Amino acid sequence: MIINNLKLIREKKKISQSELAALLESSRQTINGIEKNKYNPSLQLALKIAYYLNTPLEDIFQWQ
């Protein structure tokens, strides 16, 4: 199971779900699903999230 700190990191950087979704060329619903652990992002999307949040991938997503 993958757990994530996306919501915590996103809020700390003062970025809304909609703003992050626009940067990622994704939907706000996708970001919401990832944050609620209802959806696991593809590797490509996970890497883009890490890039746009300027945060190491392993700080956002962790195996448990």
Rank of each mutant, 00 (worst) to 15 (best):
19 E>T: 12
10 R>Y: 08
7 K>E: 10
50 A>Y: 05
60 I>C: 03
19 E>P: 02
15 I>W: 06
1 M>L: 15
19 E>W: 07
15 I>Q: 02
37 N>D: 07
31 I>Y: 02
12 K>V: 08
25 E>G: 15
32 N>P: 01
55 T>M: 07
2 I>H: 09
48 K>C: 08
52 Y>Q: 08
26 S>N: 07
30 T>Q: 10
57 L>A: 02
62 Q>R: 10
47 L>H: 10
58 E>V: 09
52 Y>L: 12
55 T>A: 07
52 Y>E: 06
51 Y>N: 08
35 E>K: 02
34 I>A: 01
18 S>Q: 13
60 I>Y: 03
4 N>P: 02
41 P>S: 02
8 L>G: 09
14 K>Q: 12
43 L>A: 06
53 L>K: 00
64 Q>T: 12
12 K>A: 14
1 M>N: 04
31 I>R: 00
17 Q>N: 04
32 N>G: 08
30 T>R: 08
35 E>V: 03
36 K>A: 13
39 Y>F: 14
12 K>M: 14
49 I>V: 05
21 A>Q: 02
54 N>T: 08
54 N>D: 15
14 K>I: 03
7 K>G: 06
6 L>K: 00
57 L>N: 02
60 I>S: 01
53 L>Y: 02
53 L>R: 00
59 D>E: 14
47 L>F: 09
30 T>I: 15
18 S>G: 13
32 N>A: 15
51 Y>C: 14
57 L>H: 02
12 K>P: 01
41 P>W: 03
36 K>I: 11
49 I>L: 06
7 K>Q: 11
34 I>P: 01
41 P>Q: 02
57 L>T: 03
18 S>A: 13
42 S>T: 12
32 N>T: 08
46 A>S: 06
36 K>D: 13
19 E>K: 13
12 K>Y: 09
63 W>S: 02
29 Q>G: 11
3 I>T: 10
63 W>I: 04
64 Q>H: 12
25 E>F: 09
15 I>C: 07
44 Q>A: 13
21 A>T: 03
64 Q>L: 05
60 I>H: 00
12 K>D: 09
17 Q>C: 06
32 N>K: 11
14 K>T: 05
46 A>E: 08
19 E>R: 14
55 T>F: 05
36 K>H: 13
37 N>V: 01
38 K>L: 14
7 K>L: 08
20 L>H: 00
56 P>C: 08
2 I>V: 12
37 N>K: 07
20 L>I: 02
22 A>R: 14
50 A>V: 04
33 G>K: 15
11 E>V: 10
48 K>L: 08
51 Y>D: 07
32 N>Q: 15
23 L>D: 06
27 S>Y: 03
16 S>G: 07
15 I>M: 15
3 I>C: 12
48 K>S: 08
43 L>V: 10
44 Q>E: 14
55 T>V: 12
37 N>F: 07
61 F>Y: 01
29 Q>D: 14
28 R>L: 14
40 N>L: 14
60 I>T: 01
19 E>S: 11
37 N>Q: 07
25 E>T: 10
15 I>V: 09
20 L>T: 00
22 A>V: 12
54 N>H: 11
33 G>L: 15
12 K>T: 11
54 N>I: 06
21 A>G: 05
36 K>N: 15
34 I>D: 01
3 I>H: 08
26 S>W: 05
6 L>R: 01
54 N>M: 10
63 W>Y: 06
6 L>E: 06
36 K>W: 07
17 Q>R: 07
64 Q>A: 14
1 M>I: 10
41 P>F: 04
24 L>C: 15
19 E>H: 11
64 Q>S: 14
36 K>Y: 07
64 Q>R: 12
53 L>P: 00
62 Q>E: 08
56 P>H: 07
51 Y>P: 00
4 N>L: 11
42 S>Q: 05
13 K>V: 08
29 Q>M: 10
40 N>G: 11
31 I>M: 02
4 N>C: 12
33 G>F: 13
52 Y>V: 15
41 P>E: 03
18 S>I: 11
20 L>C: 04
9 I>F: 09
52 Y>W: 10
10 R>G: 03
34 I>H: 01
11 E>F: 07
4 N>R: 02
38 K>E: 15
27 S>R: 08
61 F>D: 01
24 L>W: 02
52 Y>F: 14
43 L>H: 10
37 N>G: 15
41 P>C: 05
20 L>V: 01
12 K>W: 08
47 L>C: 15
36 K>E: 15
17 Q>K: 07
32 N>D: 15
64 Q>I: 07
28 R>C: 14
51 Y>W: 10
11 E>H: 08
15 I>L: 12
14 K>A: 09
31 I>G: 01
59 D>R: 08
36 K>G: 10
44 Q>D: 12
51 Y>Q: 09
13 K>P: 00
10 R>D: 03
11 E>S: 08
13 K>E: 06
36 K>S: 14
53 L>W: 01
18 S>P: 06
23 L>G: 09
51 Y>T: 08
1 M>E: 03
64 Q>F: 07
63 W>R: 03
50 A>L: 04
57 L>K: 01
43 L>Q: 08
32 N>S: 14
52 Y>H: 13
56 P>T: 04
53 L>H: 02
32 N>M: 13
64 Q>P: 14
24 L>K: 00
43 L>T: 07
46 A>V: 04
3 I>V: 14
63 W>K: 03
1 M>C: 12
61 F>N: 00
17 Q>L: 12
5 N>E: 04
42 S>K: 06
46 A>T: 05
42 S>F: 03
13 K>F: 10
18 S>W: 11
31 I>K: 01
50 A>W: 04
56 P>G: 05
4 N>I: 11
46 A>P: 03
32 N>W: 08
29 Q>V: 10
15 I>G: 05
17 Q>V: 13
32 N>V: 13
54 N>W: 05
59 D>Q: 12
40 N>P: 12
4 N>T: 04
47 L>A: 10
15 I>K: 04
51 Y>S: 08
48 K>N: 07
26 S>D: 08
35 E>I: 05
60 I>D: 00
43 L>G: 04
35 E>S: 02
51 Y>V: 07
22 A>W: 09
19 E>I: 09
20 L>G: 00
8 L>E: 15
6 L>T: 02
55 T>Q: 04
22 A>K: 14
22 A>C: 14
13 K>L: 13
58 E>M: 09
52 Y>P: 00
61 F>W: 05
22 A>E: 12
51 Y>F: 14
3 I>D: 04
40 N>R: 14
22 A>H: 13
62 Q>V: 14
7 K>F: 07
8 L>Q: 14
52 Y>I: 15
25 E>S: 13
22 A>P: 04
61 F>Q: 00
39 Y>H: 11
38 K>F: 13
2 I>L: 13
16 S>T: 13
22 A>F: 12
11 E>K: 11
33 G>C: 15
56 P>Q: 08
58 E>Q: 11
15 I>F: 08
34 I>C: 04
57 L>E: 01
37 N>W: 10
32 N>F: 05
56 P>F: 06
48 K>R: 12
31 I>H: 04
29 Q>N: 12
24 L>I: 15
42 S>H: 06
39 Y>W: 12
41 P>H: 02
38 K>H: 12
33 G>V: 06
62 Q>C: 10
13 K>H: 12
6 L>Q: 01
22 A>Q: 12
49 I>S: 00
52 Y>C: 13
10 R>E: 03
51 Y>H: 12
61 F>A: 01
52 Y>S: 07
63 W>A: 01
28 R>W: 15
7 K>D: 03
12 K>H: 10
20 L>M: 05
3 I>Y: 08
11 E>D: 08
23 L>E: 07
9 I>C: 10
50 A>F: 05
44 Q>H: 12
4 N>S: 02
11 E>A: 08
46 A>N: 04
21 A>I: 05
5 N>C: 12
54 N>G: 10
42 S>P: 13
12 K>Q: 14
26 S>I: 15
38 K>C: 14
12 K>C: 12
23 L>M: 14
4 N>M: 09
60 I>M: 06
41 P>L: 06
45 L>Q: 07
55 T>N: 03
63 W>F: 08
15 I>H: 04
4 N>F: 08
8 L>K: 14
44 Q>R: 13
16 S>E: 04
6 L>P: 00
54 N>E: 15
42 S>A: 05
46 A>C: 11
13 K>G: 04
6 L>G: 03
9 I>G: 01
56 P>E: 08
4 N>Q: 03
17 Q>T: 07
40 N>K: 14
33 G>P: 01
61 F>R: 00
58 E>A: 12
25 E>A: 12
52 Y>T: 11
24 L>R: 00
31 I>F: 03
44 Q>G: 12
21 A>F: 00
33 G>E: 15
8 L>D: 14
2 I>Y: 11
9 I>H: 06
42 S>C: 07
30 T>D: 07
21 A>C: 05
19 E>Y: 10
51 Y>L: 09
5 N>K: 07
47 L>R: 11
27 S>I: 07
10 R>M: 07
30 T>E: 11
27 S>T: 14
61 F>H: 00
7 K>T: 06
11 E>L: 11
30 T>K: 10
28 R>S: 13
37 N>Y: 06
3 I>W: 07
48 K>Y: 05
10 R>C: 11
1 M>W: 06
23 L>Q: 10
